[in-house]
């Protein structure tokens, strides 16, 4: 999640969702601070876990080596998702959320359980979706955009302004 994206979690009922799993890039120290802030600022209802996964693709990384790093990311995402079996997923942009989205489809395909995915496009995307957004538009159960011009272009998107 982008640091602004963490503000979305203030709208989520931590009593109802008593376990939170955060999937965080191994190089993403900023998100660790944000998680601490989100979790400690709310009398810590229930418990939370942090699963560290490598980036599927670094910015500027060669496309030739991308399958290797993407596979490493995939196997780590499978590991944490299998370990913590989330009931719902919320994501907000970075490339790893596509991997999480794909892995979340597996239990539904196997007929085990449906894991709904809520994708919220980054506040910074006004007229065009991010690459993750374009892919998640196809995968997500609910797709939220924060600017009207995106809602006009993507009919399945829900326009909700002033979330952050």
């Amino acid at each position: 999640m982008h640091s602004i994206g963490f503000r979305l979690l203030r709208g989520v009922d931590f009593e109802r969702y008593s376990k939170r799993l955060y999937v965080v890039g191994t190089d993403d120290m900023l998100s660790l601070d944000q998680i601490r802030y989100v979790e400690n600022g709310r009398d810590a209802q229930g418990a939370f876990y942090v699963g560290r996964v490598p980036r599927s693709r670094a910015v500027g990384q060669s496309w030739i080596t991308t399958p290797l790093t993407a596979f490493e990311c995939l196997s780590q995402v499978v590991r944490v998702m299998y370990q913590y079996t989330p009931d719902a997923i919320i994501c907000n942009g970075p490339g790893n959320c596509v991997v999480v989205g794909l892995v979340a489809l597996v239990p539904a395909i196997l007929g085990i359980k449906r894991v709904p995915i809520v994708y919220v496009e980054s506040f910074a995307r006004v007229h065009t979706l991010s690459l993750s957004g374009k892919i998640m538009y196809l995968l997500a159960d609910r797709f939220v955009v924060q600017w009207l011009s995106l809602a006009h272009k993507y009919p399945r998107a829900e326009y909700i302004p002033h979330l952050v």
């Binding site: 503000r7 709208g11 919320i90 159960d141 939220v144 979330l163």
Partner: peptide, 19 residues
Amino acid sequence: YPHADPRPIGEIIDEETLL
């Protein structure tokens, strides 16, 4: 600028997990 209100995200998650 209007105050931020992230509650609709919580409502969407609730709707989806109640399905």
